[in-house]
C-alpha cells in the first residue's frame, strides 16, 4: 500500500486515482481528519484523498501522520 519516497516519506503506492483503496485505507485509519471543503477531491469523505494529513506529491501523496517506513536492512 505504501512505499518510501526519495526523502524517506511514506508515500501512497497507488497514485491519485485509486479511489477504492484510498477509501479503504482511510476507513481503517485512526489518524484520518477531513480536510477543509475546498481541498476535498472525492465524494466519499472518508478517503485518504480528502484527509488533511495527506500531502500531494507529483505522482501520489505522502501521509504526514502515519510513522515513516524504515529502509529494509
Amino acid at each position: 500500500m505504501w512505499h518510501r519516497d526519495q526523502r524517506g516519506n511514506r508515500e501512497f503506492a497507488h497514485g491519485k486515482e485509486a479511489w477504492g483503496l484510498a477509501a479503504e485505507v482511510a476507513g481503517g485509519c485512526g489518524c484520518f481528519v477531513a480536510d477543509v471543503e475546498e481541498e476535498q477531491v472525492v465524494e466519499e469523505e472518508l478517503s485518504c484523498y480528502n484527509c488533511r494529513y495527506r500531502r500531494w506529491s507529483v505522482e501520489s501523496f505522502t501521509c504526514l501522520r502515519l510513522p515513516p517506513l524504515h529502509v529494509a536492512a
Partner: peptide
C-alpha cells in the same frame, strides 16, 4: 476561487499548494 499551483519537491507547500 481556489487555484492549484505546481506540486514539486522543491516547493515548500503545506499539503496542496493552492
Amino acid at each position: 476561487t481556489r487555484h492549484q499551483l505546481y506540486v514539486h519537491p522543491d516547493i515548500p507547500y503545506t499539503s496542496h499548494n493552492s
